[in-house]
Design a protein around this nucleic acid. Structure first.
Length: 280
DNA sequence: CACCACCCCTGGACGC
DNA sequence: TGCGTCCAGGGGTGGT
C-alpha cells in the first residue's frame, strides 16, 4: 500500500528511466481511471518527460509542453517502466510507448491498478495540478515540523492517529507509517490530538512525534518502501521495509521493546496496532 | 465545522 | 479441491 516512502522510492526509480524520454503513443484501456481530459495529448502523447515531482502520496509527471499528469496509486497502483511485456499484465489500464533512445532499452510505461482506488488526473499545467490537488494538502511529511503540526492539532479532539491520516494535516502518512511513528514516539494512537498541542505533559511528545514521522519515512525510503501486497517500484521490484515494521501487522506479537503483546483495534476505520505499555 | 461512516474495488486468506 | 465469506484501506462524499 503506497504511502509517501513508496511513492518517493518510485519517483527516484522512475527518474533515470523516464526523464528525457518521449511518450510516443498512449493506449487507454480503461478510460474511467483518468480524471479530466483523457485525450492522447492530455495524457502526454508526443510529449517529453522533463520532471517527476511528489507531494505526499501523489506523483506528478511533467511534460515539455507544460502539461502535467498527477498519478495516485491508491492501494494497489503500480507505475513501471520496462520491456514490451510490461503492459501485458492484467489490470494495466494505461500503457505509453516510449520513443527509442540510446542506452535506454525500456519501451513501455504502464499504469496498473487491480483495485482501481488510484487514478490519473490530467492538467494543462503543473500550476493547475497544484491548485486543484496539492494546495489543499498539509506539509509534506518528510518536512513536517512541530510548529505546523501543533497548529493543526490544537483544536482537534479526534484521535492523533486519525489526525495523522488526514492529508490536510500532514501529507504522505498512511496506516503503516502512522502506527510505526506513534510507536517510536511513545504516543497512544487513541490520544486526543489536542493533548499533544496544549500544556499537558503529553505535549512534550510533539517534537519526538515529528522526528519519528520524518525518520520512519526516511528509513523506509532508503529500504525501498514497504511491499505489503502490491507495491513495486519502477522496475517491478518490491521494497524491503516490511521486514522491519515494529507494530504494523504484528497484533498479538510481543513488543520489540518490552515484550508485551501488541494490541489492535479500529481507529478511524483503520486497523491500528500499538503497545499498551510503551505508548501513552 | 469537525469528524465519522460508508463506499469504491479485487485478490488473498481462511473455514467448511 | 472448491466455494463462500471476510478483510485489507486511500480518499471522496454525504450525513450527523
Amino acid at each position: 500500500m503506497p504511502e509517501l516512502p513508496e511513492v518517493e522510492h518510485l519517483r527516484r526509480t522512475l527518474e533515470p528511466r523516464l526523464i528525457g524520454r518521449t511518450l510516443e503513443r498512449v493506449d487507454v484501456r480503461r478510460a474511467d481511471v483518468v480524471d479530466g481530459d483523457a485525450s492522447p495529448a492530455a495524457l502526454l502523447a508526443h510529449d517529453t518527460v522533463v520532471a517527476l515531482r511528489r507531494k505526499g502520496k501523489q506523483l506528478a509527471i511533467l511534460g515539455a509542453s507544460g502539461r502535467a499528469l498527477c498519478v495516485h496509486l491508491g492501494m494497489t497502483g503500480q507505475l513501471t517502466v520496462g520491456a514490451d511485456d510490461t503492459a501485458a499484465k492484467p489490470h494495466t489500464h494505461i500503457a505509453w510507448s516510449l520513443a527509442p533512445a540510446p542506452g535506454r532499452p525500456e519501451t513501455t510505461l504502464a499504469f496498473r491498478d487491480p483495485r482501481r482506488f488510484g487514478g490519473v488526473w490530467t492538467f494543462p499545467s503543473f500550476d493547475s495540478l497544484r491548485a486543484s490537488r496539492w494546495d489543499c494538502l498539509g506539509p509534506d511529511a518528510l518536512e513536517i515540523d512541530p510548529g505546523s503540526l501543533r497548529t493543526s492539532l490544537a483544536d482537534s479532539r479526534r484521535p492523533i492517529k486519525a489526525a495523522l491520516l488526514d492529508q490536510a494535516v500532514v501529507a504522505g502518512v498512511g496506516n503503516i507509517y502512522a502506527d510505526e511513528s506513534l510507536f517510536l514516539a511513545g504516543v497512544k494512537p487513541s490520544r486526543p490530538a489536542h493533548t499533544l498541542a496544549g500544556r499537558s505533559r503529553h505535549a512534550a511528545k510533539l517534537v519526538p512525534l515529528c522526528r519519528a514521522i520524518r525518520e520512519t519515512l526516511a528509513r523506509a525510503i532508503e529500504a525501498g518502501g514497504s511491499s505489503v501486497r502490491d507495491y513495486v517500484d519502477a522496475t517491478g521490484s518490491p521494497g524491503g521495509y516490511q521486514g522491519v515494521h515494529l507494530v504494523y501487522g504484528r497484533r498479538g506479537l510481543p513488543c520489540t521493546r518490552c515484550g508485551a503483546p501488541l494490541r489492535s483495534r479500529l481507529i478511524a476505520q483503520r486497523t491500528t496496532v500499538w503497545c499498551p505499555d510503551c505508548q501513552s
